[in-house]
Design a protein around this nucleic acid. Structure first.
Length: 488
RNA sequence: UGGACCAUAGCUCAGUCGGUAGAGCACGACACUUUUAAUGUUGGGGUCGUGGGUUCGAUUCCCACUGGUCCAACCA
């Protein structure tokens, strides 16, 4: 292929292939070999003048000045400047450097020194070619800004945008520290089916799939809860699962169809033992991952303080704070008028309870900025939990709310099989075949009093990294498939 | 699923009250042995998301579609 033809296909790509061929002519292997090296973060941390180092990375910038050049390499842990000088290299290595492009991988060997401008730098005495990039990286200063491209081509986002890489490093650290925290308290990690015969443990539309050999319909789980409780029946006393749930619902800035959840169950515990876990786990994560107990959240840089203990307030008291102490003495008509005066749309068929819940959802929750446990919730809204000991109309749960959003419910779990069956029946209505009879049977074998909680990990990561968009904490968020390329 | 907005060079962005487009980075050439968004000179690069309509003429106006963003409804 002539050079003109190559350039008509894609000038930039062709130019890089020309450089690749020239490197091959000089005796370089085009895609390299393993290279023993020290991570750049460690080179930086252990910097000593004149120390010999071997390091490797992707070329991020090159500043060529005739017989000397500076470049920056990145290995994902840090950036580091390297210095190339004609006097210090063989003719082949100096000539070869001219044919390197941004995005290529090299390994370097040399001496640490500090430039006149004060920049720690590797003076390169020898280098190896570790791999060619035949496509250009995005713009070096602004990085990759296009929101859609950052999700579809996450590798470019991670390559160019350090804040994105940092966010996913934090996500990994959060997951590791959740495990450390729970293991240290005697919890074991378990795995339960993500493909189930029926979708239980929550109210959401599932994804359906089909098993060929069994010739049977299956659903992707919407929650692991019913399997985890079977394990409590089986005698595991402290368990957790960290895994994906799948819900066939809308996608927006706080919802992805597959999302990661932590569920924890503790036999012989209840809501208060779950509360203790939250008040231990969140400060632990803040300390280990962020090194402090406060987070700057969102564009407004709101300060969230995770220093325990956290505020606890009864559901009804939270509503009274917003709507007045006489709220629960009002008639339905008075309550509706008062709610509508606050700008809510109230269905005329709603009773006092539903109006109250609308008030809580639309007005109260968003005002709970600092970590708060909302307790003693009307049983109609949480059918699978156990009633409060002193009031059968309220269930013994908490909703843990941070920055105006529900982060994590905690329960005193239902262990009465008859009450559980009734709650299922109310939930499914006519579809009695959707009741998980095997689960009821398990409860009939006896389940100890148990506390449980379920935390959305994506939202937790959002909270702790100050991110307001769930897609920014999920490496490959769900997007529509491209039918025709929107751009080339 | 409804409403508003967006899509221009590989990337980051200007722009055209309708006469087929510019900058910076990146890329090619030349110069330069401590630069760091290197610098100086110079050159190339675009069916302006896709399809239709109006028009002498559409990247620009209108319609549909595709993808995205935000808002509203469902879910965590």
């Amino acid at each position: 292929m002539s050079e003109e033809q190559q350039q008509s296909v894609n000038e930039y790509r062709a130019q890089r292939i020309v450089n690749l061929r020239k490197l091959e002519e000089l005796g370089f292997e085009p895609y390299g070999r393993a290279f023993e090296r020290t991570r750049l973060s460690e080179v930086r941390a252990g910097f000593e003048e004149d120390k010999k180092v071997r390091a490797a990375g992707r070329l991020m910038t090159i500043r060529r000045m005739g017989k000397a050049s500076f470049a920056t390499i990145s290995d994902g842990t840090a950036n580091f400047q390297i210095f190339i000088k004609k006097d210090l290299l063989s003719e082949t290595l100096f000539e070869g450097f001219k044919h390197l492009d941004l995005g290529d991988f090299i390994g370097v060997e040399g001496r640490l020194f500090t430039t006149r401008a004060g920049e720690p730098t590797i003076e390169v005495h020898s280098w190896s070619f570790l791999g060619k990039a035949i496509l250009q990286p995005p713009e070096k200063f602004h990085g990759l800004q296009d929101v859609e491209e950052r999700y579809r081509k996450r590798y470019l986002d991670l390559m160019m945008n350090p804040e994105s890489r940092d966010r996913f490093n934090k996500r990994s650290a959060i997951l590791a520290e959740i495990r450390n925290f729970l293991h240290a308290r005697g919890f074991i990690e378990v795995e339960t089916p993500m493909m189930q015969a029926q979708a239980g443990g929550a109210a959401a539309k599932p994804f359906y799939t089909h098993h060929n050999a069994l010739d049977t319909e299956m659903v992707m789980r919407i929650a692991p809860e019913l399997y985890l409780k079977r394990l409590i029946v089986g005698g595991f006393d402290k368990i957790f699962e960290l895994g994906k749930n799948f819900r066939n619902e809308g996608i927006d800035r706080t919802h992805n169809p597959e999302f990661t959840v932590l569920e924890v169950y503790e036999a012989y515990g209840d809501r208060t033992s779950m509360k203790a876990i939250i008040e231990g786990l969140l400060p632990h994560l803040c300390e280990k991952v962020l090194g402090r107990l406060t987070v700057e959240y969102g564009e407004a840089k709101e300060i969230l303080d995770f220093t325990p203990p956290y505020r606890e307030i009864a559901y009804k008291d939270a509503v009274k704070e917003m709507m007045g102490q006489d709220w629960f003495d009002l008639t339905v008509q008075q309550a509706r008028a008062k709610a509508e005066a606050q700008g809510l749309e109230i269905d005329p068929a709603w009773d006092h309870l539903l109006i109250t819940h609308e008030v809580y959802d639309k007005l109260v929750e968003k005002t709970l900025r600092q970590p708060t446990f909302v307790t003693r919730v009307p049983r109609q809204f949480v059918p699978l939990a156990k009633a409060c000991a002193d009031d059968p109309e309220l269930v013994d749960v908490f909703e843990f709310v941070v920055a105006g959003k529900e982060l994590c419910p905690g329960y005193t779990e239902q262990n009465d099989p008859e009450a559980q069956r009734k709650a299922f029946a109310d939930q499914v209505g006519e579809d009695t075949e959707k009741i998980d009879e095997d689960f009821i049977t398990a409860l009939e074998h006896g389940m100890p009093p148990t506390g449980g909680l379920g935390m959305g990990i994506d939202r937790l990561v959002m909270m702790l990294t100050g991110t307001e968009v769930i897609r920014d904490v999920i490496l490959f968020p769900q997007l529509k498939k491209l039918q025709t390329p929107s751009r080339q």
